[in-house]
């Protein structure tokens, strides 16, 4: 049924740290790899992979933005974008077939690929562009929060996290229960001022984003002190000798 559960026992989701993400795309690649090779569902398509116009299905896309504060140097912020497993998921209620659903036990939003007619309405309803219609399977694909990893007894316990979290080299992605205020992810959100994406859309996302930390004293270029220092010793002599030429 595409009615949303009133409340979920858990709210499993991700906390993404925009301060430490380096935009390496490891999460996007490992997501593609796991969700193509795990065998739990049809692989994520690659169309015209070696041709003029390659296109493919990804459940996670990493953008890069430049943020210029009123004073001080601009900073680059890498910004992974994937399903936020919203409490009020508009993608679920618009589904005409019941293929889209939100699980009452852990809040994960999933697609039953065998019931999906590929109408694309759920992708229209999602403000975050988190759903992609697969070019080969003709059904809707989305982040499953690696539901086939996190409960998988065949995997070592350390691997029972989403593939993107496991792959992140800087620890910018955290997985846990955001409905439990005592969980590590909830404490992280509280400590760092985690926020919702597009709150005006009324989706109540489970996933949270942590803002970049403030950088250094404003108005000072970080390399300036180094450039101003006059070198001494041999380099100082060389510098003066070259100046005289």
């Amino acid at each position: 049924m595409t009615a949303l559960p009133g409340r979920t026992e858990k709210s499993l989701g991700l906390v993404i740290d925009l301060d430490t993400c380096v935009g390496c795309q490891a999460c996007a690649v490992s997501c593609k790899e796991w969700n193509s090779a795990s065998g739990s569902h049809a692989p994520l398509a690659d169309l015209d992979a070696y041709g003029a116009a390659p296109a493919g299905t990804f459940l996670n896309r990493v953008h890069s933005f430049e943020v210029t504060p009123p004073e001080g140097p601009a900073v680059v912020v890498h910004f992974p974008r994937s399903c936020l497993h919203c409490a009020d998921a508009p993608c679920v209620t618009v589904c005409p077939t019941g293929a889209s659903y939100k699980r009452a036990e852990d809040g994960i939003v999933l697609v039953d690929e065998a019931a999906c007619i590929g109408c694309g309405l759920c992708a229209w309803a999602c403000p975050y562009g988190a759903r992609e219609l697969d070019g080969a399977e003709r059904v809707m694909k989305k982040c499953t929060l690696c539901v086939d990893r996190i409960y998988n007894d065949a995997l070592p316990e350390a691997d029972r996290v989403p593939a993107c979290v496991k792959a992140c080299p800087t620890g910018a992605r955290h997985f846990g229960d955001l409905a439990d205020p005592g969980s590590a992810v909830s404490r992280l959100v509280a400590a760092r001022g985690g926020f919702d994406l597009m709150p005006e859309q009324g989706t109540r996302p489970v996933n949270k984003y942590l803002p970049p930390r403030p950088r250094g004293p404003s108005g000072q270029a970080p390399l300036e002190p180094l450039a101003a220092a006059a070198p001494g010793g041999f380099l100082g002599w060389l510098d003066r000798a070259l100046d005289r030429l």
């Binding site: 925009l18 996007a28 493919g56 896309r61 953008h63 890069s64 933005f65 992708a123």
Partner: peptide, 26 residues
């Protein structure tokens, strides 16, 4: 992006150079 409070936000590089369903459809 929720980054507007920090300053002026401008896309620097897209998430992908190839096409995607989201770009084509939306």
């Amino acid at each position: 992006t929720g980054l507007g409070a920090l300053g002026r936000v401008r896309p620097l590089s897209p998430a992908h150079t190839g096409g995607s369903y989201v770009l084509k459809e939306m």
